[in-house]
């Protein structure tokens, strides 16, 4: 089977060190509210604000943060399903940010970036059998048909541990774990270089979650795919990811090796997030609570830390000077004026 495995379209040597290099990426959505006196610029939701990170080949990057922090918008930007307002997305040695999402849909590189959506039960067409669901992107993106298509469908199913006997079933005839496998098989069928996983195990029982996580590790090793893994479950992110990006209200507040970040967070927001995760041993590191809700993402003060007001440290400086991401030992970065003080 090894002869069929691998990504043929672009030789690796021809591309840079990073598979994905995102720089100063922003996405703002205008609010359709009409102002009283006509022409004033509409208010803007700053969904993703000045985000930069890189993803090396074969690396798995975790993306965490509360709902509304811009994870999903960032994921849609990376997958080129939506267009950025400003900034750059370099994929391999190609700049993708200027290419409209609609044009990218017909681009040969479309097959190289694929997404696994959150709940496969909801994201697979209920009128498609498992085989149809897996075949669709292969037909659309790789132009396959007939025996070649069937062969590729069966290969993807086998790679994902989906028994071929289940290929004729509809989503409602499959269990949660089997549906998750269909969602993954559909995404890896066109042999992407980058797979974006949006909470792939959120709807699953722990026992099934283990098998899916182990499948993802196996696929990463066999196919050499890079992952961007979005999850609200920090323990799962820690298990699967090499590095992690913590977002708060559209901005990156901390990044670094996943274990280091979760074991000893630098940013007060990350500390609050980690402290809120229930532990099986029932022992909390501390009873730190992040009370309140995030501030509004509509036209936020460009000179104030987004976490100011909810932050247990928060001083006058935090309200007057936006902290920049600063480098720390061990390949870590955090955007807080008071990392050293904590």
């Amino acid at each position: 089977m090894s002869g069929m495995i691998g990504n043929d379209p672009t030789p690796r040597e021809a591309e840079g060190r990073y598979l994905l290099d995102v720089a100063e990426l922003s996405k703002r959505f205008p609010l359709g509210r009409r102002r009283l006196f006509g022409k004033a610029a509409p208010a803007m939701v700053h969904a993703v604000d000045d985000v930069s990170f890189t993803l090396a080949r074969g690396e798995t990057l975790g993306l965490v943060g509360e709902s509304g922090c811009g994870k999903s918008t960032l994921v849609r930007l990376i997958a080129r399903l939506t267009d950025p307002t400003t900034g750059s997305i370099r994929f391999g040695n190609r700049e993708l940010s200027a290419l409209p999402a609609k044009a990218f849909a017909r681009d040969p590189d479309r097959a190289r970036i694929q997404i696994v959506f959150q709940d496969a039960g909801e994201s697979i067409n209920p009128r498609f059998t498992a085989a149809d669901a897996i075949a669709d992107p292969l037909r659309q993106l790789r132009g396959l048909g007939g025996d070649a298509l069937r062969e590729k469908v069966e290969e993807a199913a086998t790679l994902c541990g989906l028994p071929l006997a289940l290929l004729d079933r509809f989503p409602h005839q499959l269990s949660g774990g089997q549906r998750a496998r269909v969602g993954i098989a559909r995404a890896i069928g066109p042999r992407p270089d980058l797979l974006v996983l949006d909470e792939p195990t959120a709807a699953l029982d722990v026992s099934v979650q283990v098998t899916i996580l182990q499948l993802l590790v196996r696929l990463r090793e066999t196919l050499g795919i890079s992952y961007v893994f979005v999850s609200h479950d920090l323990n799962v992110v820690r298990l699967l990811c090499d590095r992690v990006v913590v977002m708060y209200l559209g901005r990156i507040v901390e990044t670094g090796p996943a274990r280091a970040v979760f074991d000893a967070p630098l940013h007060p927001y990350t500390r609050g997030l980690v402290a809120a995760v229930p532990r099986l041993d029932g022992l909390r590191a501390d009873a730190l609570r992040l009370a309140g809700d995030p501030r509004s993402p509509i036209d936020p003060d460009p000179d104030a830390c987004r976490f100011h007001g909810r932050c247990p440290i928060g001083t006058g400086r935090c309200g007057a000077e936006m902290p920049k991401l600063r480098r720390f030992d061990g390949g870590r970065e955090a955007a807080c004026h008071y990392v050293e003080a904590a």
């Binding site: 722990v206 026992s207 979650q209 799962v236 820690r238 298990l239 532990r279 099986l280």
Partner: peptide, 10 residues
């Protein structure tokens, strides 16, 4: 044994 914890490996 199936539940991820704050320590340990996959």
């Amino acid at each position: 044994a199936a539940t991820p914890t704050a320590a340990g490996d996959l």
